[in-house]
Simulated scan of single mutants.
Amino acid sequence: MKAVGLSHRPTFRKNYLNPALASGWIEYTQPHSPRSPTQRYRLTSKGKRWLQLRGED
């Protein structure tokens, strides 16, 4: 949320997080516990390729 400058969690989840998860750009670090307080997200290989094509690391 900080990276894109948003602070309203429901809007971030609806407009950014859920579409990125559904498209396969990112994934849960704990897929069996999506509501875990320690849940994080990581780029998938698809997301990493997209960043490389954009010229970012």
Results as ranks from 00 to 15, higher is better:
1 M>T: 07
1 M>Q: 11
1 M>R: 10
2 K>A: 15
2 K>R: 14
2 K>F: 10
2 K>W: 10
3 A>K: 14
3 A>V: 13
4 V>E: 10
4 V>P: 08
4 V>M: 11
4 V>T: 13
4 V>G: 09
4 V>K: 10
5 G>P: 06
5 G>F: 09
5 G>L: 12
7 S>T: 14
8 H>T: 06
8 H>G: 00
8 H>E: 04
8 H>F: 06
8 H>A: 09
9 R>Y: 11
9 R>G: 03
9 R>N: 04
9 R>V: 06
9 R>A: 07
9 R>C: 02
9 R>L: 07
9 R>P: 01
10 P>D: 02
10 P>F: 03
11 T>W: 09
11 T>F: 05
11 T>P: 05
11 T>Y: 06
12 F>P: 03
12 F>H: 10
12 F>C: 08
13 R>Y: 07
14 K>S: 10
15 N>G: 08
15 N>W: 13
16 Y>M: 12
16 Y>Q: 08
16 Y>H: 14
16 Y>E: 09
16 Y>S: 09
17 L>A: 07
18 N>R: 15
18 N>E: 15
18 N>L: 15
19 P>I: 02
19 P>H: 03
19 P>N: 01
20 A>N: 11
21 L>Q: 00
21 L>P: 00
21 L>W: 00
21 L>H: 02
21 L>E: 00
21 L>C: 01
21 L>V: 02
22 A>N: 11
23 S>A: 15
23 S>G: 15
23 S>N: 15
24 G>H: 08
24 G>L: 07
24 G>A: 10
24 G>E: 10
25 W>F: 13
25 W>S: 03
25 W>E: 02
25 W>R: 06
26 I>S: 01
26 I>R: 04
26 I>K: 00
27 E>S: 03
27 E>N: 01
27 E>L: 02
27 E>M: 05
28 Y>T: 05
28 Y>R: 13
29 T>F: 08
29 T>D: 11
30 Q>R: 09
30 Q>E: 05
31 P>I: 00
31 P>D: 00
31 P>F: 00
32 H>A: 12
32 H>N: 13
32 H>L: 10
32 H>I: 02
33 S>A: 07
33 S>F: 01
33 S>C: 05
34 P>L: 07
34 P>A: 08
34 P>C: 05
36 S>K: 11
36 S>G: 10
37 P>L: 06
37 P>A: 06
38 T>K: 12
38 T>D: 13
38 T>E: 08
39 Q>H: 13
39 Q>L: 09
39 Q>P: 00
41 Y>S: 09
41 Y>T: 05
41 Y>R: 05
42 R>E: 14
42 R>P: 05
42 R>D: 04
42 R>A: 12
42 R>C: 08
43 L>I: 13
43 L>T: 14
43 L>S: 14
43 L>W: 14
43 L>P: 13
44 T>H: 01
46 K>M: 04
48 K>M: 15
48 K>D: 15
48 K>Q: 15
49 R>G: 01
50 W>F: 10
51 L>C: 12
51 L>M: 12
52 Q>A: 06
52 Q>C: 02
53 L>Q: 07
53 L>G: 06
53 L>A: 04
53 L>C: 01
54 R>L: 12
54 R>H: 09
55 G>S: 14
56 E>R: 08
57 D>P: 02
57 D>F: 05
57 D>I: 07
57 D>T: 08
57 D>W: 09
